[in-house]
């Protein structure tokens, strides 16, 4: 479980996060949604420790990382898996080597055990056949799956995904969403997904936070979101003509 309380972050004069408080439970897919520039990425970066908040607390199962020194942060990060918007696979390594990388660095497994574990993770994301390929030989969806395999290699307690569906077609996006959701349930991970993909919201949103102008504007789940009276959220959700028509039809 991750708890954040009163998170503030300014960049020079501009206030990006204005006192956000939330709890992210384990075994649930927690989504952070909002318009571009709402502060989603900054919040995620603060939570994973890539940025230090100006004020506030971020607790990983009771451990406040804001008070952690560099070494403590590094140790905590070994419990974290992260899926980046660009997948961020290492170009110089094959897919198998990418997945083996965290095992090489932090596990005491033998070489055979590391290969076995990496192949298990690749199999879990249905990518075993591409283990010898280089990242640039993979499609966008395959790269994301390889990145998920790398993120789960060390059996993390916390999984963070920054725009996992960006640049993917709707079908591949659904597959990535399902994979994230299944892995979260299977390993009881605390997962936080940063997205503005409405399919993800409706598909895997166990817990949804809507950010607007650096504030937490709405909080709920995928069943509650359709009935919200929050105007800013409604504007965001039904910003496309098709979705507006679907909503009007449903109302009728």
């Amino acid at each position: 479980m991750i708890e954040i309380s009163s998170i503030y972050k300014n960049f020079e004069e501009q206030a990006v996060l204005k006192g956000i408080t939330a709890v992210f439970d384990s075994g649930k897919t927690n989504l952070i949604i909002g318009r571009s520039g709402a502060g989603k990425t900054v919040l995620l970066k603060c939570i994973v420790g890539l940025l230090d908040p100006d004020k506030g607390k971020i607790k990983y199962d009771g451990r406040d990382i804001v008070t952690f020194n560099k070494k403590e942060k590094m140790l905590l990060r070994r419990e974290i898996g992260m899926l980046f918007q660009s997948a961020a696979l290492f170009d110089s390594m094959s897919v198998l080597e990418n997945v083996m990388f965290p095992l090489d660095m932090f596990s005491n497994m033998t070489y055979k055990e590391r290969i076995k574990r990496a192949q298990f993770c690749l199999d879990r994301v249905n990518l075993l056949e591409a283990q010898d390929k280089r990242p640039d030989e993979l499609s966008g969806g395959m790269q994301k799956r390889a990145a998920i395999a790398r993120a789960i290699a060390l059996e993390p307690k916390y999984l963070f995904c920054d725009e996992p569906n960006s640049g993917l077609d709707p079908q591949t996006s659904l597959r990535i969403d399902d994979l994230i959701h299944d892995i979260t349930k299977e390993y009881k991970i605390t997962t936080i997904v940063n997205t503005h993909d409405m399919n993800s919201v409706m598909g895997i949103g166990d817990h949804i936070l809507f950010l607007a102008d650096g504030n937490l504007s709405w909080e709920g789940n995928k069943d509650e979101i359709l009935h919200t009276t929050n105007e800013t959220l409604n504007d965001f959700l039904f910003s496309s003509d098709i979705l507006r028509k679907v909503r009007n039809m449903a109302k009728k």
Partner: peptide
């Protein structure tokens, strides 16, 4: 391409 961020996140 965020590969350095990925390394940092891994600790």
């Amino acid at each position: 391409t965020q590969q350095i961020d990925a390394l940092e996140i891994m600790g």
